[in-house]
Simulated scan of single mutants.
Amino acid sequence: MAHRVSARYFGLKLGEALQAAAAAAQSSATASLSEALQRGMAAYRARLTMPMLIGGAAMAPTLNPKGASQPDAVEHLLVRLLPRPSERSVFAGDVVAFTSPLTLAVAAGPAGVAGLPLGGGGAAAAAAADQEELAERLRHSAMVRRVAAMPGDELVTGEEEDSESFVVPEGHCWVLADNEAMQPPHVIDSRSFGPLPLVNIVGRILYAARSESDHGPVENSEEGMAADAPVVEAELDIGALCGGGGGGGGPGEE
């Protein structure tokens, strides 16, 4: 399948490469310039997206609309990876994949999630480990919800009689399920676990496909969709997405 590759896409990849190189240089006092450059080049060569599956009805009708009537239904998603999520890359209105705060945590190593191959091997191996960590989170601990509020936004919770207001703290966001018919405890979101740390976010959902003939982009924030447009043009392959190509993740956690 032919892809349109724009200068903006290469600019995004260059930006990821520079951030990866800078992170490598800052992570170790002994990191050499050549190691940082290798880390950056590895990041530049990597794809900006990964596929995953989502099940359940929590995000219906936006995602997996058949989930309410067909418990086994799943939908294929294309996720733009966000290795360093922040207020500069995540916006209110975005549909994001993230590691749930309620997920039982494994002991984390100094460079990431325990159990991942984050050991030696140089900068290229470290960059591959970064990618593998994100893939691992998509496979085993990813939940998908929509960002409803960002740091500094004021929210009101509870019923009118006992409603309380609070401000989303720095470094966090508030995420909700799209399915308004599902309420806690039948659905898990920030009403269950509170503000979500931005660092828990793995990526933004770009595209959803139920089949090779039934698919379309996911409605995110205007900022997110504008930033992601060149990524969709360059990396979306419906056949590969529906066929599970590209090393996709398992069904997202409900």
Rank of each mutant, 00 (worst) to 15 (best):
R137T: 06
S165N: 07
A57E: 15
S141T: 09
T99M: 06
G115C: 02
L104Q: 05
H76T: 06
G171I: 08
S86V: 02
G122I: 10
E159G: 12
S141Q: 09
T103G: 00
A60E: 13
D130P: 09
D153S: 15
G93W: 09
A97L: 10
V90L: 06
L155N: 12
Q70R: 04
G93I: 06
V113G: 06
S141E: 06
A58K: 05
S165R: 11
V74A: 02
E136F: 05
R88S: 14
E87T: 13
A92C: 04
F91H: 13
S100C: 06
A148T: 07
P61N: 13
D162M: 06
R146H: 09
E133F: 07
R84Q: 14
L138G: 06
G112K: 10
A92Y: 03
L104P: 00
A58F: 09
T103E: 02
L53S: 04
A68I: 10
I54W: 11
A92S: 03
G56A: 12
V96S: 07
S86P: 05
E133P: 02
L155F: 10
L53T: 01
E75A: 04
S69Y: 02
A105D: 08
M150F: 05
M143W: 00
V147S: 09
A129H: 14
G67Q: 10
D130T: 11
A111P: 01
A126L: 07
E133Q: 12
R146K: 09
P85N: 06
G93L: 07
L116S: 07
D94G: 06
P101R: 00
L102C: 00
L102F: 00
A148H: 09
E159T: 14
R84V: 14
G55T: 06
E161A: 15
S141H: 02
A57D: 15
G152V: 04
D153E: 12
A126W: 10
D162T: 13
P61G: 08
R88T: 12
T62C: 08
T157E: 11
T157F: 08
T103A: 07
S165G: 11
M143Q: 03
L116I: 11
E170W: 01
A73W: 05
E164F: 10
E132G: 11
D153L: 12
E75I: 03
G112W: 14
P85E: 09
A73C: 06
T103C: 00
A129Q: 14
S100Q: 01
E75L: 07
F91E: 10
G67N: 03
G119H: 12
E154G: 03
A114Y: 07
